[in-house]
Nucleic acid binder design. Sequence first.
DNA 1: CGCCGTATTGAGCGCTCTCAAGCTAGGTGG
DNA 2: CCACCTAGCTTGAGAGCGCTCAATACGGCG
Lengths: 230, 230
Amino acid sequence: MPNHRLNYESCTICNLAPFCMGDEIISECSTNGHSLFKSKTLKRREALYLLKNKFQSLYAIQKGALKTYQAESAGKELIRGFYFTGEIVGYEAIHPGEHVFSAVAIDDCVVCEIPYDEFLEMLRERPELQKHLITLMSQQLNVGSYLKFTTAEQRVAAFLLDLLNRLNPADDALEFILPMSRQDIGNYLGLTAETTSRVLSRLHKNQIIKLNRKKVTILQMDSLKHLADG
Amino acid sequence: MPNHRLNYESCTICNLAPFCMGDEIISECSTNGHSLFKSKTLKRREALYLLKNKFQSLYAIQKGALKTYQAESAGKELIRGFYFTGEIVGYEAIHPGEHVFSAVAIDDCVVCEIPYDEFLEMLRERPELQKHLITLMSQQLNVGSYLKFTTAEQRVAAFLLDLLNRLNPADDALEFILPMSRQDIGNYLGLTAETTSRVLSRLHKNQIIKLNRKKVTILQMDSLKHLADG
DNA sequence: CGCCGTATTGAGCGCTCTCAAGCTAGGTGG
DNA sequence: CCACCTAGCTTGAGAGCGCTCAATACGGCG
């Protein structure tokens, strides 16, 4: 059972907050110490759902990070997305009715389970929220795939810039921790782990970033943006 | 002003038909010869909307085909999607409120303009339709990018299979016309026009497809699926 | 017929992959 | 405390695929 502070802090940046936090619900949430929906904790590598599982719920991430992936032919996995605190995972399963990806924690996680039936019920009761949902889903359509870039350097540079935005949403710090492995990054960007590592090393050697294992500091923002643009 | 038959036929396969065709609206549509919304005709190469245009409407394609693209650095364009008869274009602009792609006709087209404000109004009046919309948008999230494939052959094979599905939805024919140029295919798949042409020629030489300019016939469906899987 | 846009085909280069060998940090047990 | 182990990361050398640049072929249309 998550404590009050945790819920309150994560709920304030949750993309679905307008659904939970309106009216009297916010007071309920903040007085009794748990959100409208049930929380779940996941340890690193633990699965939230698996391919072909029946779709029943969306999940809002209160803490931690997840990846979604599809199994590829040669035991490899094609990573379809990373999801961080405040973001929603599961939209893509609404249509097929079963999960088309698997989702596993890349960190210890706390997620908020939102049963889809109840969610639709809430939409019926509070139709002013449907515009918000449509907006959220439209937003999902724009999360660009980095595969559109042709060179490894472009992909990695654009990926780092995206991470900076999503991991430090309110802050203007230029430092963040890569929650995922080089292999995961490679599988997401359509590169091998070796190429990913080589590009990161080159960016470090060229003083564009500072790299210490999983800690990244952006030293030359303009150069990085320039590399991402091509 | 489009004629009765055109509207009726295209409306029956339109993904938004549940919005127009229910109740008395269907009779209105089929008696007076035009749909609930305004039709627009576009000639080949004509733009439906341009990058940064204010987002005002979704468009259902009654006839023809369009592509959406973003301008790239070196005068190249990155094609983000092709859209065919019965499909909806424009969802991705809902969130930003302005168009993030440009959309142009690759064929002579007829589209049905659906002003977004009126669309939301319809959703308010007929809330049973909102589940349908959410489903449609979820479906969009799953239209796989072919860039996830690593080799040119995989991408082209998967692209041909997708086109077969979308251009012959009800039919089991194995023949279709490529509405777009080799350059467009290449820009969509992250390849050059030369590589696209080479792969198509190789598939033809290996008797997997029959290729005559823009006409494609799939000769060995299993082999093609096998190539797409990798 | 001649023009022009599109498609095909060829030759050589460069980037990324493959395969392989160290390296580092963190954990375990003696 | 240290030796050892393991997973993840880094770095290197060679090969293959797709890109670049270029020439040629084809078709539609005035």
